[in-house]
């Protein structure tokens, strides 16, 4: 599991607390992101940062700014330990 897989999973889990199973079905719609039946998240080939940005945008498109903040808070600790250049734009 890469750091970006973990970030995506944490974001989905946090959204699940608020919107329930919808969090998983919305994540499944994000291109470049594979969500297995056991809820394992894998970011496939391509730019992992962009995939995370698309995930955040997917929630924000539906639920607005508050959902963006939830994503940011969910991974705040993880992001702190990353080099600034590695942090997806939506989470800076």
């Amino acid at each position: 599991m890469t750091a970006f897989d973990t970030i995506a999973e944490k974001i989905i889990l946090e959204q699940e607390l608020v919107i329930g199973p919808l969090a998983w079905s919305e994540a499944m719609k994000v291109s470049g992101m594979q969500v297995a039946a056991d809820h394992t998240v894998t970011i496939q080939n391509g730019d992992p940062k962009a995939a995370v940005d698309r995930l955040v945008a997917q929630y924000e498109r539906l639920f607005g700014r508050a959902s963006h903040e939830v994503c940011r808070e969910a991974v705040a600790t993880l992001v702190k330990s990353m080099a600034p250049a590695d942090v997806p734009t939506s989470l800076r």
């Binding site: 608020v18 919107i19 539906l62 639920f63 607005g64 508050a66």
Partner: peptide, 13 residues
Amino acid sequence: LRAANETVYKHSL
């Protein structure tokens, strides 16, 4: 609809 979604989301949060 988007505004309603946001409101529901905030309450759920």
